[in-house]
């Protein structure tokens, strides 16, 4: 699949392009041939902007995966969920974040596994009405408040 690098709307504003500077100065800048777009998280980390949603982690069920209470998860609905992915599912009227375990698929069930010994895996049988809502592609932690 082609990598999508054009971000629409609000995202565009965060790109800083410095292409006109050297033209106005009159002198050719030695850096001119090396100009490159600045790094941009929205552009570089988010593959499918239209399929990307954010969620805030509550509780400690994924603590051993390094996901803590208060972290922000970046969720891609277009990504195909695979065994071992961290996914978001809607179960019992709430969204839950867990590892997706497909190893028992042949036996007729799959599991949503927490990363914390105090929590039990959630078993989903083949005939249960179940859907992966999205795949977690990044988590963001805040270390210092401004």
């Amino acid at each position: 699949m082609a990598k999508i690098s054009i971000i629409e709307g609000e995202f565009e504003k965060s790109l800083s392009l410095q292409l006109t500077e050297s033209i106005r100065a009159g002198f050719p800048s030695p850096a001119e041939d090396y100009l490159h777009e600045s790094l941009d998280f929205n552009r570089d980390l988010i593959r499918n902007p239209q399929a990307t949603f954010y969620g805030r982690v509550e509780g400690n069920s994924m603590i051993e995966a390094g996901i803590n209470d208060g972290d922000i998860a970046v969720i891609d609905r277009a990504a195909e969920p695979q065994d071992g992915d961290i996914v978001v599912c809607y179960i019992n009227n709430e969204f839950t974040i867990k590892y997706l375990d497909l190893t028992h698929r042949a036996e007729g069930y799959i599991e949503l596994r927490p990363a914390n010994k105090d929590f039990k895996p959630i078993r989903i049988n083949a005939d249960d009405d179940f859907e992966v809502w999205g795949v977690v592609v990044w988590t963001i932690k805040n270390w210092k408040r401004y």
């Binding site: 949603f53 922000i72 998860a73 839950t96």
Partner: peptide, 13 residues
């Protein structure tokens, strides 16, 4: 408004 306000983004248990 989970797509337009940070205060409203979905909660993941």
């Amino acid at each position: 408004n989970p797509t337009t306000r940070w205060s409203d983004i979905i909660r993941l248990k």
